[in-house]
């Protein structure tokens, strides 16, 4: 019953703290390798893409994914910011692959707060950089609404966004992971074959996809709120 993030390989030491390659970083690299290979394969296959893909083919799947992400970006970000769809496609694919990696007995990298915080910080930078680029003065004025006394509240509100985003993803996936580990530890070896699958189905497949979707949608909503002129 050990669900800690194991340290695998020590890298270097700073101020008495040794930095290790942890299990989740290793899993991230495996996922990256898989996605890289998949991308390169798909990149070569795109030349032989047909006008009308056959049902159930890889092309069909990819087109479905790209088109749904495009529609999601257009409806949540607006036309002007829909070029961010590519970035969120990558984020969605990465989070989904992370969450599903526990099906292959890897430790999902999203159970490491470093991963989710890194993703949330990307969103944080996107929110504020795009806000400054697209709305300039209006963006700064938002911090003094409704009156200037609310400045600290607004700043704390802004800072809490990446925290809530990252903790939501981290907590959901880690909760599912811990529950499954507990289940595996508590069941006799005979029952470890089929019974955990039900929980895998809920915790990994359903919650995993849902959390990936929610992370993307909430990031998009936050970005639109700050960077789009349509509504303050």
């Amino acid at each position: 019953m050990d669900f800690t993030n194991h340290r695998i390989w020590p890298l270097f030491t700073i101020k008495g703290h040794t930095v290790y390659i942890t299990e989740s970083i290793f899993a991230t690299w495996i996922i990256m390798a898989v996605l890289f290979i998949f991308t390169i394969a798909a990149r070569y296959k795109i030349n032989s893409f047909k006008e009308r893909p056959a049902a159930g083919s890889i092309q069909n799947l990819l087109e479905l994914a790209v088109e749904s992400m495009h529609n999601m970006a257009e409806s949540n970000l607006g036309k002007r910011l829909s070029w961010l769809g590519g970035y969120f496609f990558g984020v969605f694919a990465f989070i989904l692959a992370c969450n599903y990696s526990s099906l292959f007995k890897l430790r999902p990298p999203t159970t490491d707060f470093a991963t989710t915080l890194a993703l949330a910080l990307n969103t944080f930078f996107l929110i504020h950089v795009l806000g400054l680029v697209y709305r300039k003065g209006e963006y700064l004025k938002d911090y003094f609404k409704p009156i200037f006394v609310f400045l600290p509240t607004n700043i704390i509100g802004e800072l809490s966004r990446p925290v809530s985003l990252s903790f939501r993803l981290f907590g959901n996936i880690l909760g599912g992971f811990i529950m499954l580990e507990l289940l595996y530890a508590s069941l006799p070896a005979v029952f470890r074959i089929a019974i955990p699958d039900i929980f895998h189905f809920y915790e990994d497949i359903f919650i995993g996809a849902l959390q990936a979707f929610i992370f993307c949608v909430l990031s998009m909503t936050f970005i639109k709120e700050k960077a789009s002129e349509e509504e303050a």
Partner: peptide, 9 residues
């Protein structure tokens, strides 16, 4: 890692 992967994808 995440930045490289997302931008690559």
């Amino acid at each position: 890692n995440t930045l490289i992967l997302t931008l690559f994808l």
